[in-house]
Write a protein that binds this DNA or RNA. Structure first.
Length: 388
RNA sequence: GGGUAGGUUGAGCAGGUGGUGAGCUCCGCUGACUGUAGAUCAGCCGUCUUCGACUGUGGGGGUUCGAUUCCCUCCCUGCCCA
């Protein structure tokens, strides 16, 4: 392996400091992100704690699983319990009892993916709350204000998502608005200790994706996020979009965050193309529905065959669930609708995902990335439900 | 022994007072889930050769062109009275 000089992405006075080196594996980097609440080794995965909780897990569970940073959500928290209340209670870290770094989403994704009654204009977006239908207004400035009230370590700009299959003119219009909103978010920032990431949009069209990348990269953000992917496009389209982003960002040493990804296989695809940060609901959501990720691929613990299986979920895992309990026990808990099923399954899947990221960092350093990638791809290519 | 209410696909039900009973909820089986309105959702859940067909309303018998329905009888269950 060739030694690469470390790249420093921001001056020391910045809210975060990111140093990285290239690895010889595509555009993959190994890095270290320093925040006021702790250090994050990259590539890294952020468990999603939408409503000031990673569902069913305590901060202690998250620490045990190896979590270094988690995600919180502007949209949900601003509606309930409200950003002002969290601020009065000492900020999101204290409120939820997590003293590590927190990245907050801006609410853009939620407004455009779930709020049905919404109207977008140049100034912002009006939408109906999913809780009570009440009208709310989100602007770039308000999105920043909310995240500052929450006390986020890393905030995201308000962006506009569109279905990538819409006509290019509509995708382009949303993209350009996202760029204008990005500049407004930068101007709206009041707390210099909060980092702010821009978000690249542009759908799956390579030209638009490249233009959006260049536009966002030209602004003085602390990090660059890639949005609008893993929303139904093909694996090839996602990989192609990441290629365009990677090529356009060549020489840019800021941390790169792929929003909403992903599956074990997708993590490899993105790391190879230079992604440093991920978040995804998949490990915790599928866990609650009985799907466990293992060194044998995915297992659905609700399947009848696991009722008599005395083995741990994953013999290669050292999490609380795998150390103390059998597949048969988990299968029983799911059948009995016992709450412990959700916690144990989530503990395992988060541990699995974070361990996978640690393994990825390890193989990026020792040169065996391709081997691990192919192993994991083979594990997850097995037909769902296939026997052991 | 008398009276009364019942017996519907694993469970619980709906419906049906002579004109095609496979409808619901559980349970069960499988699948899905990617910046979390998701401890959720979807399909299947009598049999078969499954875009359809067949069988099935406690057992047997009767009336009828046709019976889950009307009649007879038997069995089983709950309740009431002896």
């Amino acid at each position: 392996m060739t030694a690469h000089p470390p790249n420093v992405a921001a001056p020391a006075a910045a809210p975060i400091r990111f140093t990285s080196r290239s690895t010889g594996v595509g555009r993959a980097r190994l890095g270290r992100l320093e925040t006021a609440h702790g250090v994050v080794d990259t590539p890294q995965f952020m468990p999603v704690g939408t409503q000031a909780t990673v569902k069913s897990l305590t901060p202690g569970d998250l620490r045990s699983a190896g979590a270094q940073i988690i995600l919180g959500n502007t949209y949900h928290l601003s509606l309930r319990p409200t950003a002002e209340r969290i601020a009065r209670l000492g900020g999101l870290h204290r409120f939820m009892g997590w003293d590590g770094p927190i990245l907050t989403d801006s609410g853009g994704f939620q407004v455009f993916s779930l709020a049905r009654l919404r109207k977008v204009d140049e100034d912002g977006v009006t939408f109906a709350s999913h809780l009570d239908g009440a009208q709310h207004r989100l602007t770039p400035e308000r999105a920043i204000e909310i995240q500052e009230l929450l006390g986020s370590d890393i905030a995201m700009v308000l962006d506009q998502l569109v279905d990538p299959s819409l006509p290019p003119a509509e995708v382009a219009e949303a993209m350009k608005r996202t760029h204008r909103w990005a500049a407004r978010c930068l101007a709206a920032r009041r707390r210099p200790e909060m980092a702010l990431f821009g978000i690249i949009q542009g759908g799956v069209d390579p030209d638009l994706r490249g233009r959006s990348t260049a536009a966002i990269a030209a602004l003085p953000f602390d990090g660059i996020a890639i949005g609008g992917l893993s929303v139904g496009e093909s694996k090839a389209e996602m990989a192609a979009a990441l290629e365009v982003v990677g090529a356009t960002l060549a020489g840019d040493h800021r941390v790169r965050y792929l929003m909403g990804v992903g599956s074990p296989v997708d993590l490899f695809t993105a790391v190879e193309r230079g992604i440093d940060l991920f978040d995804c609901v998949l490990p915790t959501r599928v866990a609650r529905n009985g799907q466990l990720w293992t060194s044998e691929g995915r297992l659905n613990l609700r399947n009848a065959r696991f009722q008599d299986d005395p083995e741990p979920i994953d013999a290669a895992c050292r999490c609380e669930a795998c150390t103390n309990h059998s597949r048969a026990y988990l299968a029983h808990l799911f059948r009995a609708d016992e709450l412990l099923a959700y916690r144990l399954a989530s503990v395992h899947n988060v541990t699995y995902t974070l361990s996978l990221m640690a393994n990825i960092r390890s193989v990026l350093a020792d040169g065996s990335f391709d081997s691990l990638r192919d192993d994991v791809a083979a594990q997850y290519q097995r037909a769902p439900g296939a026997g052991r």
